[in-house]
């Protein structure tokens, strides 16, 4: 069971003396990013000690239990690995070596060995490329949102470029930029900038007009309106775009190393396959999966941090 959305101390609503007796008790959802009990976070009840009428006194499960619960969610994943382990244990197929053998090799190559050096250039390209794509996407999207006429002129072109499979522009980029690091970063940026850009434009266009009216009523300057209203209001969609861009960045990081490259994890996998070192090849794929998962986990953690309000508001909406 996931405890993430359980009402946390539903009786924690503080009702002022003059509040109507019929006011619904507010359930305070737990939106803490890391689930730890830090003070002053959104889910913490503002305490003057008063308790609302509808308290059911339910407390959150202790931390250890919650940790166990999140591990339990991985049961199917674990079961698959066990099945793989058992099914491949006596395998003599050169293409599907026993999992135990792959893992041994993985430790030899990637933990005690030197192959981890292959990760460095890959992650460097990814970090630079993804950061650039994110920045260009958000800033460019905001500019396109602001300059409506430019947007109207450019949008059809954007969608036209967006549908080109990223790998298809790789030859063109190699032709222009050669096969160095610049090419690899460029392909990551070019392929992954679109989801963020388009989501930023869309998210900003979708800002509730009443919130913009409110900004005017409160005399916010245009710049403050963008920074304090449009950007946060569009943030849920911007983050969705950034997440999509993240996946594409990881894909393009590998793809760029499959062509005319002598380093990086993509090169490692391709090279192992060509040397017929199938076990090595599998270790590369597993490392890539682990790296991708870790990057996604980091992203989700950041998302929970900056969109805590959104996740919380959605949870409340769902209960109404």
């Amino acid at each position: 069971m996931s405890t993430t959305n359980s009402p946390r101390d539903a009786g924690g609503t503080t009702l002022p003396a003059s509040a109507p007796a019929t006011a619904p008790a507010v359930t305070v959802p737990d939106v803490a990013p890391a689930g730890s009990g830090s003070a002053g976070r959104p889910g913490a009840p503002a305490g003057n000690g008063q308790r609302g009428p509808a308290g059911n006194g339910r407390r959150r499960a202790p931390a250890a239990l919650r940790a166990l619960a999140s591990v339990w969610r991985l049961w199917f994943f674990a079961a698959l690995i066990v099945a793989w382990w058992l099914a491949s244990a006596s395998s003599s197929s050169p293409y599907f070596p026993p999992l135990s053998e792959i893992l041994h090799r993985l430790v030899d190559l990637w933990i005690t060995g030197d192959s981890k050096k292959d990760l460095v250039p890959s992650l460097e390209h990814f970090a630079i490329g993804y950061a650039m794509a994110g920045a260009i996407g958000v800033v460019g999207g905001a500019l396109l949102w602001y300059f409506r006429h430019v947007r109207d002129a450019i949008t059809p072109l954007l969608y036209f470029v967006y549908v080109i499979p990223s790998a298809a522009i790789l030859p063109a980029i190699i032709a222009v930029l050669g096969i160095g690091n610049g090419m690899k970063i460029a392909i990551i940026v070019l392929a992954s900038v679109w989801p963020t850009l388009l989501n930023t434009v869309d998210g900003m266009r979708g800002v509730d007009p009443l919130q913009l009216d409110t900004a005017r009523v409160l005399h916010m300057s245009p710049l403050r309106t963008v920074r304090s209203v449009v950007l946060p209001a569009a943030l849920p969609q911007i983050m969705a775009g950034l997440r999509n861009s993240l996946q594409i960045s990881i894909i393009m990081m590998v793809v760029s190393e499959l062509v005319a490259s002598t380093s990086g994890i993509g090169f490692f996998i391709l090279d192992a396959q060509q040397r017929f070192a199938i076990t090595d090849m599998w270790t590369g794929i597993i490392v890539l999966a682990v790296v991708g998962s870790l990057l996604t986990l980091v992203f989700v953690a950041v998302e929970r941090l900056v969109l805590g309000w959104y996740i919380g508001a959605r949870a409340v909406e769902g209960k109404r």
Binding site: T14, P16, A17, S18, A19, P20, A23, P24, V26, V28, P29, G40, P42, A44, P45, A46, G47, N48, W309, G312, A313, V316, E317
Partner: peptide
């Protein structure tokens, strides 16, 4: 007539 709700978020409060 609202007391100590400053740290909370709008969606954690009732409509009134």
């Amino acid at each position: 007539g609202l007391g100590d709700v400053g740290k909370r978020y709008p969606w954690q409060l009732s409509g009134g």
